[in-house]
Amino acid sequence: MSFMFKSPLDIELRLDGEDSRETVEVKTAKGRKEKLSLYKDGETVKGQVTIRTRDNKKVEHLGVRIQLLGTIETNNDGIQADDFLSLAHELASPGELKHPETFQFEFRNVEKQYESYRGTNVRLRYYLKVTVSRKSADVIREKELWVYQYQVANSKDSTAALPTTTVKMDVGIEDCLHIEFEYSKNKYSLKDVIVGRIYFLLVRLKIKHMELSLIRRETCGAAPHQMSNSETLARFEIMDGAPVRGETIPIRLFLGGFDLTPTYKDINKKFSTRTFLSLVLIDEDARRYFKQSEIILYRDE
């Protein structure tokens, strides 16, 4: 509610079919959760704007317009906002408002190239903005939408074009530890299962346990001001106790249980979000040995 204290107008923004539309629960900056209506690429955004005057006063205005904006906010070197999408409709020409008035609006077949995203230093958001221009302060009302992008199997998108391969690697420390790890695929849908195994070829360390972590790395900006930050999304213990030569530890990690973001590569040349699978071994003296490998994530219908 961007409600100014002495605002003479009450603006209500409603979307058509709000009750039947799918919603997404997202975390706000303050840690609470809010429900937003979900839209897809190419979908029409339509609804009504109702403006009421308070105390039955007459309010003069210089025009009412509604905009649909898509913006990327980065916190690189101070907060910067950059609009990649900007559509506008005029709802009313300059005049007077006496009684409550309702205006219909429709943004037809809007291309929504990117997914909505709320990260640590980057936010990508789509929102409707109603502006009643006045000689004194403008009255503004915003309503945020959420957008998901679904991967189409044969699209030209770089993620889809990447062939699915098995991830298999031989890593270790000379004469001390030698493991072979294998994951079924290099790219997964958000509801997929990571299936794989760890095979121990040489164990001269006293291993206490082994865990798998999912790490999201967000990178924003371009060199020399590029900033990266990593967040551990999940930590999962897959082995407790000391393994010996020849032992195989299976991996089965259901991704649906975690709050994951699909892999974003260089969105509008502003930011990227990548996910890594980190295998960590911890020994008796609390030393940590780890191997990270990237996994490509995509959203499936």
């Binding site: 164990v203 001269r204 360390l205 006293k206 291993i207 000391a242 010996v244 030569r245 020849g246």
Partner: peptide, 8 residues
């Protein structure tokens, strides 16, 4: 490998 003395 299973039951012998471990290498560590």
């Amino acid at each position: 490998e299973l039951y012998g003395e471990p290498e560590n």
